[in-house]
Design a protein around this nucleic acid. Sequence first.
RNA 1: GGUGUCGUGGCCGAGUGGCUAGGCAGAGGUCUGCAACACCUCGUACAGCGGUUCGAAUCCGCUCGACACCUCCA
Length: 496
Amino acid sequence: MSPLYQKQHLQIYNSLSGTKEVFKPLLEGNVGMYVCGPTVYSNVHLGNVRTFMSFDMAFRYLKHLGYKVRYVRNITDAGHLEDDADQGEDKIAKKARLEQIEPMEVVQQYTIDFHNILQKFNCLPPSIEPTATGHIIEQIEIVKEIIENGFAYEKNGSVYFDVLKFNESHDYGRLSGRKLEDMIANTRELAAQSEKKNPQDFALWKKAEPQHIMRWPSPWGEGFPGWHLECTTMSTKYLGEQFDIHGGGMDLKFPHHECEIAQSEASCGKNPVNYWMHANMLTLNGKKMSKSTGNYINPGQIFTGENEFLSKGYVPGVARFFIMQAHYRSVLDFSDEALQASEKGFYRLMEAVHVLKGLEASSTSSFSIQEWIDSCYAAMNDDFNSPILIAQLFEAVKYIHQLKEGKEKLSAEDLEVFKNTINAFVFDVLALEDSTASADANTDKLSGALDLLIKLRTEARANKDFSTSDQIRDALLEMGIQLKDGREGTTYSINQ
RNA sequence: GGUGUCGUGGCCGAGUGGCUAGGCAGAGGUCUGCAACACCUCGUACAGCGGUUCGAAUCCGCUCGACACCUCCA
């Protein structure tokens, strides 16, 4: 069978061109994708999770289409400067000093937290997850190349990228739509004592002050790499000088991604990325979630409900469903009310998927399932439009009920395709975890006990002993077990 | 101040020059011992003001408002 991508033509919104473009990888059938990972100096917050979840969905869809994808996502465990002045201290070192532990201990702790959280949200691990500290040598090599090519200069043990020089022969600012002249005109003259030739220049290598704990030897003395360099280095190393997709949060577009382009072009002379993808912000109270301003919620609090903005806890699948209901390029505002709405929709969808499993085929089909399938692919091919896909899934929910009631029919072949498609989109692409299914998979004993309770309640109802029957029903509901009285007896569902 | 994005029904959130997503909430109904669950039916919204057009919420201009980036942040 030929791979799906030969039939399904994916379009991706490219931040570089500002338009949707047909996706065509450099090497047919293969995709190289790089996503900027977290800086591990504190717990990831829900806004971070949204971005990684968006690219997880993209990764999953590319794989679904039959592409062989190498997905690289870095861990930033060194280098991010605390401020632009010459403090020479990065966030990880500062945190380590405050907590009186080794920097790598901080890194380890928050890397584990990051992995745990993403796993809970059903994100696949990337193919390669390189660390900045593991690629110091490679970073130094790139700095050397940039100096050799005349686009960087050394000053007092630090190396800076010469943006003005670069802009003479290249276009600095084309990703973010900025013009260097405008930037110069609007510069705030604060860092007057800076070693930089121009305020727009950025550090490739920073000299380590004596109190700085994270340091490595280099041709320019002991120091540490600048904060844009790692991504250039590691994407080049694992995906090549040119690769297909580079993703990250919208807030990284400038200066981070702009600097990456500049570094690549200044070192190897090639435009590194064909498709730039930027995921939009998750807001809280209408404002961007941000560690530095304190306007954020920790992902773990979603599950427990321990947050002033939450009325209760939610299973990870609900949060994922909520996020997938918005397009990745739109700002999404987080609220308890919106999450509650998503929760109901999520369980309704999952219930229907459950019902679908037990449906039986007819000899013929009364409607075209292929038309529906096409609309699902059309949604995803249109720049990963997961909200439209979900709308189509709710169309499928209607079909499922009509099939169940015998109002519509599907042949064995069509039913099989229907089931496969639903499973592919719900579980493989959107990765909505079916918490109801996992609950009853390992609860044989519970289901036996429930069957008994249902039997007792049915008998009580037959005897018109409604106080007993209602007691059973209400007590179970308290525990999150919903009894459902149908025409053919009572069934139940377990909500977590 | 500069750059960019956006402003959609009670809420969330797609989309688009004419065929008017979807979810939640709400209303009515079927089912039920009463319920819950489930299912069926129902809402003609697109910031304001001009303009282009046979026709705009969708294109253009202006106004107002919001957000993001310009400084570490997904």
